[in-house]
Amino acid sequence: MIRFENVTRRFPGGQEALSGLSLNIDAGEMVFVTGHSGAGKSTLLKLVALIDRPTGGQVIVDGQNTARVKRRRIPAYRRQIGMVFQDHKLLYDRPVFDNVGLPLIIAGAGPRETGRRVRAALEQVGLLQKEKRNPETLSAGEQQRVGIARAIVTRPKLLIADEPTGNLDPDLSLEVMRIFRRFNEVGVTLMIASHDIGLIDRLGCRRIELEEGRLAAPGDPAEEPAWP
């Protein structure tokens, strides 16, 4: 699903966020990207979402070489990917329902399709009762679940998340990870940047550890998930 081939991201100053990184994530995998801050986790996700471009090497997502996606095609490309952010990136001038439905409206879904899908997504994150609320009135954990509902409302094949539990306490973090796990069980590929090693180890998923833009320890896909 995601393949990095000798990818380098060098900034104009000369520092490298990623240095000749190669990795492969299969369809249906749930993979964590870990490492200290500044190790290149965010850059890695940004390259997948085409928020940033590599200065060397190739990033191939779902068979598409991202280097060939022109600027005009980036929106259509991003619509194939669900994205979850540490700071939720919700719009606080509209209710939960409208936030979750936004990707559908962008894609051009009709009102009936939108209503059906938004409710399905909200049900999956357990917020069906709160569709009319303004996200500002929700707790941090609930806001993050709204963000997740928005990411999955188009039912993408790939979901990427940047520190989705960064602002949450352990119980809420576990709840969010459980939700991710359920998506993974129905076939969604997930790539999650996190530094919450303890939590990741409990989930038993493959871990890609970055250190100064390189792989620190290769993940072990053969390891049996130790899901509680």
Partner: peptide, 26 residues
């Protein structure tokens, strides 16, 4: 089972025709 659930999970958004989208959005 897993396969059918997979299909259900990953479903492209059903969009309306381009004209209908255009008018609806505007």
């Amino acid at each position: 089972m897993a396969v059918s659930r997979h299909k259900d999970a990953v479903a492209p958004v059903r969009t309306r025709g381009p004209v209908s989208i255009w008018f609806g959005r505007h």
